[in-house]
Simulated scan of single mutants.
Amino acid sequence: MNLMTAFRNLDSYGRRRAPEVIRHEAALLERRLVRFRPELVRLEVSVSQTRGKKRIRADLRLGLPTGVIAAREEGFGIEPVLHRAFAALGRRLDRLLSRLARAPEWKRPARRARTGRLLPPAPDRAEADRRALFFDLIEDHLDHLYNVVRRELTYLEASGAVPAGRLSVRSLVAATILSGLERFEQRPTEFSVGDWLTGLAWRTIEAEARAARRAVPDDAASLDETPDQPAGEPTAADQEMFEFYQPDDLLLLEDLVADEDGEGAETLAVRREAALALHRALADLPVLWRKVVQRLHIEDETPEQTAAVLDLSAQEVARIAEAGRAFLHQRLIEAGHAPDSAEAALADAETEVAQIPQPLEDRDRIATAMTGNRDGRPHGTSNTAEHADH
């Protein structure tokens, strides 16, 4: 690290102690900068004292490949002022390193502690049998539940209703399943288990989204601190670091569009752009409207089923469906699509949505929690092949 110092109007004690304190604090700071090449790091320290007065001001400027951060402190003692200035600079450096590593997207200690294990072991045989029965009921609906959560969370993040990266599909699916386990004996019987899980998922997402909007951001700065200096233009090293830390499960509207085979490149590009425009418009729909449109046009459910799941009347479903379709049609036209292509995009909405199977790791985690085994069978049971071998 390149270190530059400047002292103005310091008394004899300040001129003697300031270099010692700066060298000590700079050495501690340098240990946190091992990811940067030393020749690309520059620390400038300026300490001044008002002529004829005892007030001291310390200005620190740390130049990194990713930009510049600074800190300033004032006081009446050279050592306390420098220690506070370096402490403030260290806090801002920690926030910068956290953003570079995208820590807010994966480092949530409280949530990780809760979701490290989906459920504790069953306390008795009756609870184990209850969990196994519940898993048998929901096993065939896990892929559908995963896609419902994935789509809705993507729309919420795309519209800005939920901070990007604040919630995860895995944790929302787990929370939905736990909610279902608590009340599955009281589940409504007028519609299927899949519809019941869908309703639970929507309520879970809505509650978690409200909590996420109220939560303090992970990289929030104190109002008592001086704002960070704006970063400079990104370098090649910045871009490499960003690509290295780019999360694989980043939610994008593009990932909701199904892949098509057997068509020409030009036709494919037109259909994909129309599908993306449709998803952007869906993200802007009011939440209730989006649920109705998805049930009717993407999941191909009947108005009666939609009304039962959403606890609406058939007249309300029809009114919302008509208004939502008109909204989407207008948005597609505003996005530059011809009326006939807009109609085609709405008609093909079901086939244009990608359906992705739930990750095997997540499914195994749920099966282990509910039955005690990764394959979904309770402890102490064996399959037919095992019986045949013996």
Rank of each mutant, 00 (worst) to 15 (best):
P65E: 02
D195I: 09
A26W: 04
V309I: 13
A307K: 03
A209I: 12
R319E: 13
G77C: 00
D259N: 14
I69Y: 05
T267D: 15
S46K: 13
P230N: 06
L29E: 04
A174V: 07
P65T: 02
T176R: 08
L82T: 06
D218A: 15
W289Y: 08
L10R: 08
L29M: 01
P339M: 02
E182P: 01
L119K: 02
L172T: 06
R72F: 03
A70V: 12
L62F: 04
F242R: 14
V193K: 00
R325K: 05
E233V: 11
P19S: 09
E361P: 01
M370A: 05
F134K: 01
L310N: 08
E301L: 14
P378Q: 04
A369F: 05
A277P: 06
R32N: 12
A338P: 03
P109G: 05
L89E: 04
A349Y: 03
M370P: 08
R210C: 10
E152I: 01
D238S: 10
K291C: 02
R42K: 07
R112V: 07
A265T: 11
E139N: 10
L82A: 04
R170G: 10
L100I: 15
Q305M: 14
L288I: 09
E243Q: 15
T154D: 03
I333W: 08
W202A: 07
V216S: 00
S159F: 05
G336N: 01
R374S: 13
P230M: 09
V173H: 06
D224V: 04
P303N: 02
V149R: 08
A113I: 04
R32G: 07
V353E: 15
Q294W: 11
V173E: 07
A367I: 08
E127K: 00
A201C: 03
P234S: 00
S159C: 10
V45P: 13
T226K: 12
V287C: 01
A318P: 06
R377F: 14
E157V: 07
V353R: 15
W289L: 01
A323H: 09
Y155H: 10
T226C: 08
K54E: 13
A85V: 01
V173Q: 08
A175P: 02
